[in-house]
Amino acid sequence: MRITCPLCGARDRREFYYRGAALALERPAPDAGEQAWDDYLFLRENPAGETRDLWYHANGCGAWLVVRRDTRSHAVLEVRLAGEGAQ
């Protein structure tokens, strides 16, 4: 598998650390309530299809990336810097 880092170019996935759903970027406010925090920390979709994951270019530039990909074909549809926002 290869991921095209917006800063470094196409690299083997062994350069990246996988973190999980990009939902982790959408941190609730401190007073958002138990349900919002529970959703944020513990509940995850398991889609057959499009998904957005966080990957860290650990053996590269150190950028956190949002990778949009298809879990059925493993096609990588889009890679963005996490700092550009979750959407």
């Binding site: 970027l25 860290y56 700092g83």
Partner: peptide, 13 residues
């Protein structure tokens, strides 16, 4: 190190 980068880039860009 990874955590700091995540918080900085992902939560407090």
């Amino acid at each position: 190190m990874r955590h700091l980068e995540f918080v900085s880039q992902g939560l407090r860009p």
